[in-house]
Amino acid sequence: MSEKKVTIDPNKLMVVGIVCGLVGVYLGVIRSEVAGLISGVLAVPVVIWGADAVRRIASYGLGTGVPSIGNLSSGMGVLAALVGLAYQPILGVVLAALAGVIYGVFVAKFKILEIPRLPRYTTELAMAACLIIMCLTSSVIGYYNPMPESGFIAPAENFENIFQALFATGFIAAIFWMTSVSILHPFNAGLGVGERQGRTLQIGIVTGGMALTLAGIARVGYLVMFSPETSPMAFPLGYATIAAGAIVWIVGIVVLVRTASREAAAALWTGIPPKTKK
């Protein structure tokens, strides 16, 4: 079965997603709060890649709905992301890929889900969710410093920040669900007969902006709740993250509405329904 013709090659999206995600996580080596903002922004291309992976796997018809795929990917991703943040982010991505391959191979081998090239899809989903969670986490804690003074394991100060910012406040649940929703929503909203890759990925920009906004809110919330010793730029950069998320969100919606009204048969203003008397 040949796949439908797509405007953007999935392999290109995958490369862009992996590169953006890894750059986003490793940007903390500059040890500046600006890195948090940029790594949050770099999560948006990863969201678009994840949305494309969901689009490819869910177009086969799963029998359980698209949301299950999003929850599956964020479930796989969050465990790998925590391991990655504790050791080295690249190790987390490799482990996510490995776990995704094993998951896909076993599910395909026992004919639980008969979809061609299933292991590849589960691998992509796990890696995308892992990278999104790591990027958003480094955005919430300010910056993630992956460079150890000695050895291979990332410094413990990172994990202390993660513990305070995500676990003590409970923001990890918000990040978890936002990752899930940002990956699953584009295809869930766009699916249908006239579904087109470009339009679905434009919804990915919108959900990516939402995820970034949420990371900004979590950043400000963490600063207010714990007031850690940070540079004076911490609060402005937190608000800047929210603003950047809102900009991506609004731009995504404007682009999406334009595309949708151009590709629709007709977009008509029906006026406000008149009030009817009983």
């Binding site: 029998g63 299950s68 929850n71 479930g75 889900l113 995500l166 676990f167 003590a168 978890f176």
Partner: peptide, 27 residues
Amino acid sequence: VPLFVLAGIGALAMYFVNANIAAYSIR
């Protein structure tokens, strides 16, 4: 308290991974 959150998120993630396999099998 963070340990409860950690264990909760870990268990939730495992729940999704397993429930999905069963869900795909049931169709």
